[in-house]
Amino acid sequence: MAHDDAGGSAPALRADRLGRRYGQVWGLRDCTLEVPAGAIVGLVGPNGAGKTTLLEMIIGLLEPTEGQVSVFGAAAHAHMAARLARVSYVAQDHPLYRDFSVADMFRLGRAMNPSWDHGMAQARMDTLGIPPKRKVKTLSGGQQAQVSLTMALAKRTPLLVLDEPVSSLDPVARLEFMRDVMASAVGTGLTVIIASHVVSELERLCDWLIVLTGGHVRLAGPVDDLLAAHRLLTVPRPTSDAELPGLTIHRTDSDRHSTVLVRADAARLQALGRPGWQADPVGFEQLVMAYLQRSPQTAAADDTAAAAAQPRPLAKEVTR
């Protein structure tokens, strides 16, 4: 697509068969996504699943080995400056210059970003009660995270990317941090991508979900659509996967029953009405856990089968 300077009509994030190889190992492969502007995206996956790899390619800190990624229409290297102006990043462990004062950090932000909102940055520090003269190294972890978030917000970009922003924080600091992220996103049209292990946090915040395991996107789409496309079936034993309407994501067998989380389109779920079968809606955390527990081999085989059945990649299909 054409490079859209206003970024108005372009999706916030578009990845097309994006891949990154480290030596012989693929950190991320075949990642195809289209996230609309204004979405609050939860990115979930076990350690080493490729979350940071994906995020760093979005920012432009890492070059893709194959494929393309664009932010509001600004693609890779050709529009590096345009891309950097559209995305702000709070990296894992919120790195800051330890011997800088908070005011120095903000001065750096102002020097390195034409769109810097200095008044907002200072106002946030006042609200949080962080004195600007304090050295970064004397601040608590929660305060450092807040300074990082403030720097990202003051950059005034339409996309905010957060990599494990709360993993090192205590529960209260976590809550406050996430609340502040949401407060900034509400009403501003800010698109947010949050990588996190704290699934319950994401459930409260996100309206979009991406599940990444073994370097592949297993699930991506608006949370409501994803929940609607899955059911938790309770079926008498023995019922084989082949008898079930749709793809088995996760299965637990007890003495008499099997509890199976399946993915299927609405029509097939409607048609389901065999005696002794029970279909329940799926919760966010249940859905995420089912995908995380699926072995990467099974997931890969299923995705290959799905890709063979349909020309469109799975992630796109669920999106629509």
Binding site: E56, I59, G60, L61, M80, A81, L84, A85, V87, S88, Y89, A91, Q92, D93, P95, L96, Y97, L108, G109, M112, N113, P114, S115, S148, M151, K155
Partner: peptide, 12 residues
Amino acid sequence: GTWRLAWSQTVP
């Protein structure tokens, strides 16, 4: 790890 900060500002 501050490269992630330094190189994600608007200045390339």
